[in-house]
Design a protein around this nucleic acid. Sequence first.
DNA 1: TCTATTCATGAATCGACTT
DNA 2: TAAGTCGATTCATGAATAG
Lengths: 379, 379
Amino acid sequence: MRVLRTGVSAVAPLPPSELQAQQAWLNTIIKGDCVAALEKLPSKSVDLVFADPPYNLQLGGDLHRPDHSKVDACDDHWDQFASFEAYDAFTRAWLLAVRRVMKPDGSLYVIGSYHNIFRVGAILQDLGFWIMNDIIWLKSNPMPNFRGKRFTNAHETIIWATKSKDAKPTFNYDALKTFNDDLQMRSDWHLPLCTGAERLKDDGGQKVHPTQKPESLLYRVLTASSKPGDVVLDPFFGTGTTGAVAKKLGRNYVGVEREQAYIDAAEARIGEIETGDASTLEMQKGKRSERRIPFGSLLETGVLKPGAKLTCSKGRYYAIVRADGSLKSGDHTGSIHKVGALVQGQQACNGWTFWHIDTGQVRKPIDDLRQEIRSRLHT
Amino acid sequence: MRVLRTGVSAVAPLPPSELQAQQAWLNTIIKGDCVAALEKLPSKSVDLVFADPPYNLQLGGDLHRPDHSKVDACDDHWDQFASFEAYDAFTRAWLLAVRRVMKPDGSLYVIGSYHNIFRVGAILQDLGFWIMNDIIWLKSNPMPNFRGKRFTNAHETIIWATKSKDAKPTFNYDALKTFNDDLQMRSDWHLPLCTGAERLKDDGGQKVHPTQKPESLLYRVLTASSKPGDVVLDPFFGTGTTGAVAKKLGRNYVGVEREQAYIDAAEARIGEIETGDASTLEMQKGKRSERRIPFGSLLETGVLKPGAKLTCSKGRYYAIVRADGSLKSGDHTGSIHKVGALVQGQQACNGWTFWHIDTGQVRKPIDDLRQEIRSRLHT
DNA sequence: TCTATTCATGAATCGACTT
DNA sequence: TAAGTCGATTCATGAATAG
C-alpha cells in the first residue's frame, strides 16, 4: 500500500514558497488510518484542520417513513464503536495527532451531532485546546422526525478551537462582515443540505458517501479561518469536500482517508476543479428572508394570553386560545388555520387574517400581533 | 436557616391529587446548596427538570469576561486540568442528585454555552442519561463581539435527556405542531433575550440577576415535556422564571436557590402570577390518545354497510367490506390494515387513511367516518 | 416549452398495547 | 417476557414525469 498517493490534483494550487513546493504530501490524499497517516506529516505544518469524524450513531432497527419506504441510514462499519470509552480513546488519539501537525496559531474545526459532539468538546478542553466558538449549522431542509417522538433534528454543531488559549488564529472578520451584508457573522449558519448535482452518486445513482457535507459549509470555514496558500488538513477526507473547496479558494489541502472508494471519488472530483479568481467566487448566502413567526410565539412572548377570545372580523364566529397555541371553538380544536376552516366549513383558511382580537375599541387581525413581534426581533 | 420556605405562592396551582397537596415542598423555593437541598425531596417525585447551572464554579470569572480582556489567571496545564475536574465533580454531583428525584419517565433540560455544555453533555452520557435532542436557542438580539476576533456568539445550547434509553417521556408532539402552524417543531428555537418589562430590576434600576432567562424559553420547554399538574424542578432557581411559567401553565414547581436576594425576587414575582383556567391549559391531543374506535364499529353503528366498496385514494385498488369487519380484495382477506398492505405489496399499512369511500361526489378516507363516531360519542 | 404533479430522499440514537 | 397486533407518522427540495 502506498502511503502517499499523488492524485490528479497533485499540483498545489498556490504554493507560496519553495519550501511548500518541495513537500510531496501537499495536495494529496494519504490512504490509511488517521493517526498513523498523520505521522508522515511534519509537526507544525498545518494552518487549518476541518474534521468530520464518525458520529457514533447508535441506531436501533430499521426506520420507515410514513409512506413505508425505508430510511437509508448511516449504518456503516466505520461509525460503530463498542462503547463511549472506545469512542473517547479514538477521539483523543486523533486529536493528539492533529495537534502535533497544527501550527501554533492554527485553527481546528470539528463537526458533530449530539451523539458525539459533547465528548469531542470535553476532550478538546482536556487536551488543552481553546474553544473560540461553537457554531450551529442550521439545515434549511433536514429530515423530519417520522415517529413524532422528538424535535426535528435540524442542526449540527461545529466547534472552532485553537491549540492554546494564547493562539492568535486567522479570522477574516471584515471579509465575513462584508459577506454578511455588513453585519457581524454570527454563530448560526443557515445552509441547505448537500443535494442535487453537488451530491456525488455512483453508477447506480446511489450516494457515494452517506454524509457528504455541502461545499457552502467548507467555503465559510475556509473563508473565515485561512488565507490563500495556507495548508488545510482534513483527517476524515471522505469524498473530498474540503479538498474541493480548498482548491477552489487557492488553499493547499491534505487529506487522510481509509476507504479506497472514497479516495477515488475525491480525486476525480478535485481533478475537475479549477482554482478560481477568488474575487469571482461567491459564498452561498444564508437565507435572509423574513423569519416565520408561528402562532405559538404570540403566547410565549405574552402578546396573547391563554384564554383570549378571538373572533372573525364580523364577530360571527369565535374561538378560545389555549396555552399550547391551539384554538377551541365548540367541538373544533386545532391550529388557527384548521379551526378557521372548520367553523366556516371550508377546506382551508388563513388563520392570521381570519381571526381578530378586540383591543379596547379596535378589532384587529392577529397578523398585526405577529408584525409587532417581528419588529421587536429586528430591534 | 429554614430549609423549606413557604412563600407567597405556596398554594399549588393545580394539585391533581390529595397526595401532592400534602407535600410541603410543592410550589416552594428551598434555600441552600443544590445537592443538599435535593435530599429533602423524595425520590422519583419530579416529572420535569430545567437546570441553568453556573458555567464557571471553580474557573473564576475568567471565562466570561465580555470584553475578552486578558486574564492574569494561572494558565498552566495543571491548573487548567484541576479547574475542569472541579467543574466536572460539581456537575456529576448535582446531576446525580437530580437523577434520584426524577421519575423514571421524567425529562431533564440543561442549558449552557460552549464553556460548559460539552462537559455537561459528556457527563450526562457517562451517568446513563439518554439524550433525546440538543436544542439551539437562537438569540434574535445577542451581544455583538466587540473586538471582531470571533463569530458573534448568538446562541445557547439546551440538552434534553431522560434517565435511561428505555424512558418514555412526555412529549406533546401534536400540541407543539399546532403551536408551530402545523409544522413539527424543530431543534432550533428563535427567541429574543429577556429584556424590557420582563427583566427584573432592583430599586436602582440594575438587573437583579445576570442571566435571567426569557419566559418564552420556559414556556416552550414546559409545553413540550410536561402536563398540567406535573411537578417541575429547577435546581438553580435564580429569579424564578421556571416557577413563574410553571404557575402560569398550571404546573407545580419546586426551586432550589442559595442567594436570599434571588429568592425574595422570585417569590414576589411568582406571587403576582395567575394560573390560567383548566380548559385553556388543555393540550392538543394526538389521535393515539383519543378513544380507540375499531373498524367494526362502523358496521355496528350503520355508518358503513356490509358489501360497501372501499378504494384507495386514486381508485386503483378496491375491496369489499364483509359483515364481520374484514375486507376482501381478490384473494386477499383480513383487516383493513392487512389487506391494505397486501394489495400494495407492502409490509404495513394504516387502513384508516389508505381506504376511502365514495359518498356522493366526494371520496374521503374511512378515518373521517371514525371521526364522526367520535364526535357523536362526545355529545 | 411551460406548468402541474408526483416522486425520491437527507448523519435518525424515532411504538404502544394485548396476550 | 416475548411475541403478536394495531395503527400512527414527514418537510424541504430537486428531479422526473405528466399534461
